[in-house]
């Protein structure tokens, strides 16, 4: 959140406020908002409630029996996953409009989470298909097939990021990809649905879901959406924390830690966070003269973490 406009380390403001203690300069937003705990508790409660309702409250479906209850897991997961992809596209639009690295990070994390959810959807969809149609994979089933195509497309997101060296270009290209793929999601579903007979249980389309089932479905949709948001926030927090750790390590190891990186992760604040954590002595190269060598010690207390806007 608050890290979008950092200055590169080693600027002239290093010595400003050298008497502040590290505790005071600890940024308040370091863990990316305080609502994480509330959110976690809420999503645990909701997922528990949804699963409980799916198993004990919802009535047994007449033809498919117990197996039908996987519907309360499978369909919400799929809806949340695809919405996540589309949301990532919207975040990517924001990134291209504002050029702020945080939007790229959000889009990246959203696609990452959606991919994980998507694998879950494919697995529980396969289980359902095996149970009700007798095959693990059914080609005549449009939703399953289009979902697979979408997952295959998004699986190239990480390789694409990984093979672009320049962080700025990596972010830009990834956003272009996310926008295109986000628009592809609904188009692909229309195309594949046109191509095959309707075999998928179209529970939602028919509109005759009995009350308890509908209630359970809505509850579990909310639960999994909440779970998605919580996991998304957790990953964002982890990224921020790791990035701050990297910045601190970079301060410790000197200004000219190697800037080489080969990663698919978005980078917050160009020029920062590039320190290699595994290279403690990186700053003590032949070119490091004694005067700059003294700087990291005061800098640790006053580095740019302290200059973050709350």
């Amino acid at each position: 959140m608050s890290t979008g406009s950092r200055q590169p380390a080693g600027s002239t403001e290093i010595r400003r406020g050298a008497d502040q203690s590290p505790r005071q300069t600890q940024p308040r937003g370091a863990l990316y908002g305080g609502s994480l705990r509330t959110l976690s508790i809420a999503s645990v409660v909701m997922v528990g409630l949804a699963l409980g309702m799916a198993f004990f409250y919802a009535p047994e479906e007449a033809t498919e029996g117990f197996l039908q209850r996987i519907f309360y897991l499978h369909v919400p997961l799929a809806i949340v996953c695809l919405s996540g992809f589309v949301a990532a596209g919207a975040m990517a639009i924001m990134h291209l409009r504002t050029r702020e690295a945080r939007w790229d990070l959000r889009s990246y994390v959203a696609i990452h989470m959606s991919l994980i959810f998507g694998v879950g959807v494919l697995i529980c969809g396969s289980i359902w298909a095996k149970g009700s149609w007798g095959h693990w994979w059914v080609w005549s089933e449009p939703t399953l097939v289009s979902f697979l195509i979408v997952i295959l497309l998004y699986a190239t997101y990480q390789p694409l990021r990984f093979s672009i060296e320049d962080p700025e270009r990596q972010a830009r290209y990834a956003s272009v990809f996310a926008i295109t793929a986000g628009a592809f999601v609904p188009l692909n579903f229309i195309a594949v649905r046109l191509s095959t007979a309707y075999l998928h249980p179209r529970v939602l389309g028919t509109g005759k879901l009995p009350g308890p089932m509908a209630l359970t479905f809505v509850i579990s949709l909310i639960a999994f959406a909440l779970l998605y948001v919580t996991l998304w926030r957790f990953e964002m927090t982890a990224k921020h924390a790791r990035w701050q750790l990297k910045a601190l390590r970079r301060r410790l190891s000197g200004e000219d830690a190697p800037a080489r990186r080969r990663s698919a992760e978005p980078e917050l604040g160009a020029g920062l966070g590039t320190g290699a954590p595994g290279v403690p002595g990186a700053g003590v190269g032949p070119g490091a003269d004694p005067a700059p060598g003294l700087r990291p010690e005061p800098a640790l207390t006053t580095n740019n973490l302290g200059r973050q806007a709350p």
């Binding site: 195509i149 979408v150 295959l152 497309l153 190239t156 390789p159 694409l160 093979s163 672009i164 060296e165 270009r169 290209y173 272009v176 990809f177 295109t180 592809f184 188009l187 692909n188 195309a191 594949v192 046109l194 191509s195």
Partner: peptide, 27 residues
């Protein structure tokens, strides 16, 4: 254009293009 600036462009291009071309292949 997306793939040409990447390191593995001969790989990335078809990987992204094929899923995007599936609807055309269907039709």
């Amino acid at each position: 254009a997306l793939a040409v600036k990447t390191r593995a462009r001969d790989l990335i291009g078809p990987l992204i293009a094929l899923p995007l071309l599936v609807p055309i292949a269907i039709g």
